[in-house]
């Protein structure tokens, strides 16, 4: 396959940046999207040019690092995959592919396709945890029975990998899907009840301070989320937040 890539190049956080065109040839349909970029980078290195910087770690859809907006969609055209799981067979010979970093004021570009997602970490620090005394008296995990439906929903919420595709896809750059997944995974379990009130208030406060936009329920996040995190989590977070505000 021969492709034209239109890639966002930006030298550093303060550089203005622009879209640069590249031609890549001999791309195999079996390559992953990141392998295709590896080929491009090898080419650039051989030509003495600066390779395209992009984030990646696991390359199997677990770490959530590969934040790329491909042809107008977070993680590209396929659903329920991260960009590292996207294969070139999803494209056609001769295609032009736009590759851009996540766009959100709260996710500033560091270089090329790499954005700073530490805003998510700060939201997690604000409440995405439970305090358990683990010094020698750890309880058996099965000591507290949990209803199957709740355990499943909590597990589903916990599959969020913090990739940020929800923010990137949302026309408002809202982080509600991410935050709601993190709130839900604890709100559904007895272990999460102790800190439930503070958790949702603090995490939402941090989310707002980071400069994410307001959710208007377009549902784009749910469609683009590689882990299928559902909008039900946002509804749950809204309920938790109202409950906590009335209490607190």
């Amino acid at each position: 396959m021969n492709l034209t890539l239109k890639i966002w190049r930006q030298k550093g956080a303060n550089d203005k940046g622009k879209i640069v065109d590249y031609a890549v040839s001999e791309v195999s349909p079996d390559m992953s999207f990141l392998e295709m970029l590896d080929v491009l980078n090898q080419d650039l290195i051989e030509k003495g040019e600066e390779p395209v910087a992009f984030d990646h770690d696991c390359r199997e859809g677990i770490c959530g690092m590969c934040s790329m907006f491909v042809n107008g969609q977070a993680h590209g055209p396929d659903s329920m995959v991260t960009v590292c799981q996207l294969h070139m067979r999803s494209f056609n010979d001769g295609d032009t592919i736009y590759i851009e970093p996540w766009r959100a004021t709260a996710f500033p570009v560091i270089k090329d396709l790499i954005v700073d997602r530490t805003a998510f970490d700060r939201i997690q620090h604000a409440g995405g945890f439970i305090s358990v005394n683990t010094s020698g008296n750890t309880q058996d995990a099965n000591a507290i029975p949990i209803e199957k439906a709740n355990a499943d929903a909590a597990f589903d919420a916990a599959t969020c990998i913090g990739c940020g595709a929800c923010v990137a896809s949302c026309k408002n750059s809202s982080a509600m899907l991410f935050v709601s997944a993190k709130v839900s995974q604890f709100a559904l379990l007895p272990q999460g009840q102790v800190e439930a009130t503070d958790r949702v208030l603090n995490m939402v406060k941090q989310m707002d301070e980071e400069g994410f936009g307001n959710c208007t329920n377009t549902g784009a996040c749910e469609v683009e989320c590689p882990k299928g995190i559902s909008l039900e989590n946002i509804a749950r977070m809204n309920r938790e937040y109202l409950k906590a505000s009335l209490k607190g």
């Binding site: 907006f69 969609q73 766009r103």
Partner: peptide
């Protein structure tokens, strides 16, 4: 007010953004 805030949340827009792939025209 929300619209202004939301526009500020994405200072640089995408060169290519396929909103129709994930949301309705009405919602956007």
């Amino acid at each position: 007010v929300l619209e202004i805030k939301n526009n500020k949340s994405r200072a640089v827009s995408y060169a290519k953004n396929k909103g129709s792939a994930n949301s309705t025209w009405m919602s956007r």
